[in-house]
Nucleic acid binder design. Structure first.
Lengths: 208, 208
DNA sequence: AGCAAAGTTGACCGCCCGGTCCGGTTATTG
DNA sequence: CAATAACCGGACCGGGCGGTCAACTTTGCT
């Protein structure tokens, strides 16, 4: 159904350049955010600027390719953890993996890089569904308080990295501290009623 | 010591324009972030672009003026709450005020708008010291866990707004939900040891 | 080896940005 | 009501951006 590039195998050098471009772009976006210029990305990859646009029609498309890659990787981790016995540690491990991934290359913007392409939307929806399942399991096992939804966790997921980004020369794993604090806020022991209902983030599965 | 514009009373229309400019800039920055263009700000204020640069030498200076204003307002709230009996609710009220202010005009960037001017740095240092006192009092009263520092709260302070910013059409007080969760994470009941020492944010007072 | 298709390149285009500048306008003072 | 200094505005400048294109190089098939 997804008629993706049916018959074209892609030339050897072209494939090399494409990979170099993706890596360079990820680095550049991580260091300088969305303002990273296409020219710099091209230079970093050791190719001409024109080559960028041959592989990715637009700068947003390049960004989308990276975003999809990361989200898929994270989703795989989540899927894997869905089979774990202890849902609490599974959820915690997932959040750790997410924060760790984000720490290496800050892609916080990817979340807001909203409806760049339907592919991004689909991938995000899939990831969100996985997280929702993880959270549901943890809630069932009473490992987290009953008033926490999947949307809550999705939203809070990026907070540790965000928070740490304001520390000038932060130690690389400072985010663990804030993940721990926030996670403690999710535990039943915290137990104070929440003043506002959770948002709905459209977690409808277009699943598997 | 602060030799601010000693003898010039400022003309009537000029003062009006300056105020309009500050208001327009705050709105524009809130809506579009740092990328808001000077031309748009000028248009919104109903003045020419040249007028902007007459009042503020650079775009960063304009931003700094707004930032200082907000930080001072927040500091005043904090100072006031320092005399409250219940340090726990005082801290909570402070965080509520901070989030509320940020919700109206998202100035999260102001934090990273680092060393634009020494005036900004001084104001921020003062605000941070106030927060540190608030936290210290709450800690003494055992209203929050003993391993939480002022820096922790400063960093976590903006998280609720950040988190909510990813919800497309968020209800205007959704931030309360996430402030509550994070605040619960600060309570002694949460009680899980933190995996990383707190950062130092340079809270040295150049005080009053 | 030879050749067509695929890929690469950097000069180039139009656009928008922050910041400058000077001719014209307005508020203030006596 | 002058007269003057303060102030205003928008055309203008240099620079960087995303994106295009036609001339050139490389790849892979025969």
């Amino acid at each position: 159904m997804t008629g993706v590039t049916p018959p074209r195998p892609l030339r050897a050098d072209a494939a090399r350049n494409r990979d170099a471009l993706l890596a360079a772009a990820a680095d550049e976006f991580a260091e300088r955010g969305l303002e990273a210029s296409v020219a710099d990305i091209a230079r970093r990859a050791g190719v001409g600027k024109g080559t960028v646009f041959r592989h990715f029609a637009t700068k947003d498309d390049l960004l989308a390719a990276i975003v999809i890659d990361r989200m898929d990787a994270l989703d795989a981790v989540g899927q894997d953890l869905l089979t774990a016995d202890d849902a609490a540690t599974a959820l915690h491990e997932f959040l750790t993996a997410a924060a760790h991934q984000r720490q290496q290359r800050d892609l916080s913007f990817l979340q807001s890089a909203g409806d760049v392409s339907p592919e991004v939307t689909r991938t995000r929806t899939r990831l969100y569904a996985t997280i929702d399942h993880l959270v549901a399991r943890a809630r069932t096992q009473k490992a987290i308080r009953p008033d926490i939804t999947g949307a809550d966790v999705i939203l809070l997921m990026c907070a540790p990295n965000y928070v740490v980004s304001y520390v000038p020369e932060a130690p690389p794993d400072l985010w663990q501290r804030y993940l721990a604090i926030i996670f403690d806020g999710l535990r039943p022991a915290a137990a104070h009623p929440l003043p506002h209902p959770p948002p709905s983030l459209d977690l409808s599965d277009t699943a598997t």
